[in-house]
Amino acid sequence: MAAGNGRTSLGRKALAPVLAVGVLAVGAHLWLNTNLFGPDEVCGGLVSVDAAAAVFPSSGRVSDRAGLDVRPADRLAFTCTVESSSFLPGSDTGHVRVSGSRERGDFPFTDDGRWPNPATASFFSGGATGAVADDHGWVLLPDACAMANGPAIVEGYAPEGSDPLELARLLTDVANKAGERAGCLSQGLLTAPAALPEAPEPRPVDAAAVCGLKGLAFPGPDGRGGAEETVQQDVRPTWACDVAGYATYAVTQEPRVIAGIRSSPGFEEQPRTAGRRSSGFDPQHVVVDCAGVPTYFSMEFGQSYLDAVDAPGTPRVQDLFDDFVGVAGERLGCTTPTS
């Protein structure tokens, strides 16, 4: 009996170190590869750890490394990089960069190389206004957050393969926290979209209905051959079409975007567009009245058009834009201008 008790005691003593190592291993795993026992928020409280973790295509521990960088003169101007890291074999470190800035109100439709082509973006509006495309997204803050240098947005870059809907939700959440901190959410919190429209696939151009608009002229010379276009299906509140290499068209009646455009520096009266009074930033980025609804039209030109601009049969820039406003306006139900 005594010998049996000795063996049991010896077995327990041998098992104790094994259990201790196991506990340490589990604790190390939870600490290094998950968010258990970690903070609920990073980036100075602007980013929810759970919301950020949902964006990353693989699991890991979320941190903000260098933390939040804020410009003292503007609480809605900031940057922060969120990192998801894991020590599991084969795991990569992922990064989501979030920032707040002020932009010209029609920034999603301008070709400065920073923004995704609007024809490939999934736009959303209602509870929140924004778009996601190519692992890059933005959310517009309310009008009350605008200043003399333009409306405020929250922008985010995510790793390839991230869930675009989760990115939209994260950016909406960050916009709410940033807006609350700045004291400009008097109308209540923004709400993230429940779903996103799918981005369209490229297709051959129909010469009789470029971008699906019957009668719209091709933005280039007659011998175009083989051109492709990417066309969004929904007309309202935001629509865009890209004729690859030649031109990108966009229209929006989204009230928050229109308000941001009108409040931006440089927005002023422009020459008449398709016979309509217009205001904007230049003759190809304007807001006109469409049956009582302020409507923004824009057209950006690609390298293929610029290379052929002097070739016979290539329409002039303003003729193309006037044609676009007339044809697209008719589809939107705009009345013919009388003055």
Results as ranks from 00 to 15, higher is better:
8 T>D: 07
168 A>T: 06
36 L>D: 11
187 Q>M: 10
20 A>F: 13
96 V>R: 03
299 M>V: 07
6 G>W: 12
147 M>D: 15
322 D>K: 08
71 R>L: 14
207 A>M: 10
91 S>D: 08
229 E>C: 04
258 I>Y: 04
32 L>C: 09
83 E>G: 07
284 Q>C: 11
198 E>K: 13
214 K>N: 08
213 L>K: 08
257 V>Q: 14
257 V>C: 09
124 F>V: 02
257 V>L: 15
327 V>H: 02
124 F>W: 10
6 G>T: 13
169 R>W: 07
188 G>D: 08
168 A>V: 05
145 C>F: 09
18 V>A: 07
70 V>W: 08
84 S>P: 04
104 R>Y: 11
319 D>R: 14
275 G>F: 01
203 R>M: 04
103 E>A: 12
285 H>F: 01
238 T>C: 06
234 D>M: 10
24 L>I: 14
175 A>G: 05
337 P>A: 04
309 V>G: 02
178 A>Q: 05
119 A>V: 07
296 Y>Q: 07
68 L>K: 05
227 A>F: 00
213 L>Y: 13
49 V>C: 02
306 L>M: 12
151 P>T: 09
86 S>M: 04
41 E>S: 12
197 P>N: 03
90 G>L: 07
274 A>P: 01
236 R>P: 00
207 A>G: 09
332 L>A: 01
135 D>N: 14
32 L>Q: 15
129 T>F: 09
41 E>H: 12
209 A>M: 02
259 A>F: 02
14 A>W: 15
155 E>M: 11
181 R>L: 13
90 G>C: 06
322 D>S: 13
35 N>T: 08
260 G>Q: 10
94 G>D: 14
125 S>T: 11
195 A>K: 10
195 A>F: 08
159 P>L: 14
160 E>P: 03
135 D>H: 15
339 S>T: 14
120 T>Y: 10
196 L>S: 06
300 E>S: 14
280 G>W: 05
305 Y>Q: 00
6 G>D: 14
98 V>N: 09
163 D>P: 12
316 R>T: 10
120 T>W: 03
37 F>W: 14
201 E>F: 10
171 L>P: 02
242 D>G: 04
60 G>H: 07
182 A>W: 09
242 D>Y: 05
241 C>T: 00
80 C>I: 01
101 S>F: 12
129 T>Q: 06
233 Q>R: 15
302 G>I: 00
267 F>N: 13
130 G>L: 08
166 E>H: 13
107 F>C: 04
76 L>N: 15
153 I>K: 06
321 F>H: 10
134 D>S: 13
242 D>T: 06
244 A>N: 11
328 A>F: 01
309 V>T: 10
44 G>E: 10
239 W>P: 00
307 D>F: 08
159 P>E: 13
